[in-house]
């Protein structure tokens, strides 16, 4: 990426933050209504030991959920691709799981599963796995007809066709799903924690937001919010990098324009 490409959004960001701080000071808005960026940065620095611990907790749940979503979603997709019958029989249930709002199931899961971390993980997984599953199924079924015939002509086994043709062909679809799933895993983790509302040593950022709200520590609330956003952006960017590295040699989506 060229420097200029990074400069433009950075300039916009700085301008917005500057305007925000200016307006807050100009109208003397109290920090418990709307703190300025400086106050938020201050809170972030001051509460860093507390917030960084929560950041790690949330990050861990989101990443574990993503890992589960990738492995289970991917495996399920391969199973679906093996037979139309399996796909028809099970796909509707995956859709049911997807369209049910996680806020609605989270209380149930919290009741059924004793361990809070585990129930958060399950909630985040439910939100994250569907894009991986549906994209990978689509990718596995999108193999070029001529390629399929080529494999048949040379006597490829089912396994060889899966491994050498369908899976590599599904990779761009899978990665697109993964990128969406990365953001959703974080959302799922945060929403579930809001519902759980559990405190203690192992609390994530969502609980810090709730807690700061009760205690009217609004700058800290904003600091936790900023950390969630930063985490989401970092996950998205990291998965984008993975996507680019895996596809750059052959897929249109990862090509640099010539010239």
């Amino acid at each position: 990426m060229k420097i200029v490409d990074a400069l433009a959004p950075a300039a916009v960001g700085l301008a917005v933050l500057g305007g925000w701080e200016g307006l807050v000071r100009l109208y003397g808005v109290p920090p418990y209504v709307l703190p300025g960026p400086v106050a938020i940065a201050h809170a972030l620095a001051e509460d860093w030991p507390l917030l960084s611990g929560s950041l790690l907790v949330t990050l861990r749940i989101a990443l574990l959920a993503l890992l589960l979503a990738v492995s289970l979603g991917g495996l399920l997709a391969v199973a679906f691709a093996q037979s139309r019958w399996v796909e028809r029989a099970f796909f509707p249930y995956a859709v049911v799981l997807q369209v049910t709002p996680v806020v609605a199931i989270a209380p149930l899961i919290l009741i059924w599963v004793d361990d809070v971390t585990l129930s958060l993980l399950i909630c985040a997984w439910i939100v994250a796995f569907f894009p991986v599953l549906s994209n990978t199924v689509l990718g596995l079924n999108s193999a070029d007809r001529n390629h399929v015939e080529l494999f048949r002509l040379y006597g490829a086994s089912r396994w060889q066709t899966l491994w050498l043709l369908r899976l590599p062909g599904a990779l761009p679809f899978f990665l697109a799903g993964l990128r969406v799933a990365g953001g959703l895993a974080l959302i799922g983790a945060v929403v579930a924690e809001f519902v759980a509302g559990a405190g203690g040593a192992g609390s994530g950022l969502a609980f810090r937001i709730l807690e700061a709200g009760y205690q009217l520590k609004i700058p800290r609330l904003f600091a936790a919010l900023a950390l969630i956003s930063a985490l989401g952006i970092a996950i998205f960017a990291a998965l984008g990098l993975v996507q680019h590295l895996l596809l750059r040699r052959w897929h249109e989506s990862a090509m640099q324009p010539e010239g």
Partner: peptide, 24 residues
């Protein structure tokens, strides 16, 4: 068999494409 289009696997380099029938 040579298809009307080249029908190469886009994720494999030339030699990997050529050795596909032997691999199979």
């Amino acid at each position: 068999f040579v298809f009307q289009e080249a029908t190469l696997l886009p994720w494999s380099d030339a030699i990997t494409n050529v050795r596909l029938p032997l691999r199979l």
